[in-house]
Design a protein around this nucleic acid. Structure first.
Lengths: 218, 218
DNA sequence: CCAAAAGTGTTAGTGATACACCCATGT
DNA sequence: ACATGGGTGTATCACTAACACTTTTGG
């Protein structure tokens, strides 16, 4: 692709969060071209002229991860003059939350390859993508506290310990078991599900599910 | 200006808040051209190709209001395909807070004229500017609660009642005088200033000032 | 019977809310 | 002296944080 010097280009990048192996991870792609060749960067790409911003982010993500119906939230635009040496790029980043078990990275199209990284052990990132990740993490934490987006990170049924684990990983701090359960029950966003889950030699845990799957302020 | 169909255009619009005559107001401009001719819209305009987004917003605002050094915060981009009939416009809105007394609207350049409107009695707005205003108001309230941006709305010295007034206007609800003063004092962001302010036949009020003028989380 | 995670209540502390009277001034 | 907004403290309530033992299972 060739870039003109007197034109704006709009890209939509995505910070895709998931929880895998008890860590909060984001999806990164190793760049196969200059600039920042062989550095890691956020998945994303050019917005087409006849495409909404969110549509573009969804399309790019689907191409990268093979996952449809991804939940996306807009972040602040980044548009410094020299953030990309090729031309005047303004990026509208989004952040997404997915259940890592459902993603199949092998379906990646093109020569680049995608990989999960712990948010606490990121490689050096291309462009100003580090700033975007920081912004996304801030927003993620805010929304996990104040909305029911955790829905997006959890499987259909889960135990209270699994949910607590997810919170601890996102906020990077231990929570008190009794207080956590009390708070969650008061919120009234979960419903008990008939079965139980066994996971080793100990008492089986009751299963729960979110009452509502739609985005909702608490 | 002529718009090409296969190009993105970036605009920076500003939602400028102030408090005037005991009301929370924003600055709007009556459009003198199509589309939306003679409707009101947010001040703003095209970002130049060699200009940062915030720089552009500052420049536009200075042209419209004659005020420099305006405090700006970025909002979410709006970029729906058909939000502007002339072409593919993506706007990066900002919101700004100013002390209304310092602004001189007569310095408006060009044929359009600027005017303050109460946020609770807005005229019909051009484009999707109503959505932008709503987003800005939400962010304003969040930040007034959690940061010291109120600095931007107040004159150098002020009385506690004046500050309380500003809060009541922004949140559109009465506050308890004693609780308000207690909370503010506990935050420790104000310092007492020697003089007093008289304003009618009653006890004069002590003057206060913000200790720090920079943006700060509380 | 031992190990390991599930499950369950109470107490203390902290911050938010509600509320009423005296003070200093100009007229 | 009176009208007007300035200034002050206390008691209650709601929410948050700290904390330990019993239960159920597999091995």
């Amino acid at each position: 692709m060739e870039f003109k010097k007197n034109m704006f280009y709009i890209t939509a990048d995505a910070v895709v969060f998931t929880i895998l192996s008890k860590e909060l991870k984001i999806l990164l792609i190793k760049r196969s071209h200059e600039p920042f060749k062989s550095k890691f960067a956020l998945p994303g790409g050019m917005v087409n002229i006849d495409e909404d911003l969110e549509e573009a982010a969804k399309r790019e993500l689907e191409e990268e991860t093979g996952v449809k119906n991804i939940f996306l939230k807009k972040l602040h635009a980044f548009g410094e003059v020299n953030r990309d040496p090729r031309g005047r790029m303004v990026t509208i980043p989004f952040y997404a939350l997915v259940d890592g078990e459902k993603i199949n990275l092998n379906s990646t199209s093109g020569a680049e390859f995608a990989q999960w990284f712990s948010v606490y052990e990121l490689p050096e990132l291309a462009f100003d993508h580090k700033k975007i990740v920081d912004d996304a993490l801030k927003h993620l934490r805010y929304e996990v506290k104040n909305t029911n987006i955790a829905v997006q990170l959890m499987p259909e049924d889960f135990t209270l310990s699994e949910l607590q684990n997810a919170y601890e990983i996102i906020f990077n701090e231990k929570q008190d078991k009794r207080n956590f359960r009390k708070k969650i029950k008061e919120l009234g966003i979960l419903k008990a599900i008939p079965g139980t889950k066994m996971d080793g030699a100990h008492r089986p845990a009751k299963l729960y599910s979110f009452k509502e799957k739609g985005y909702k302020m608490l």
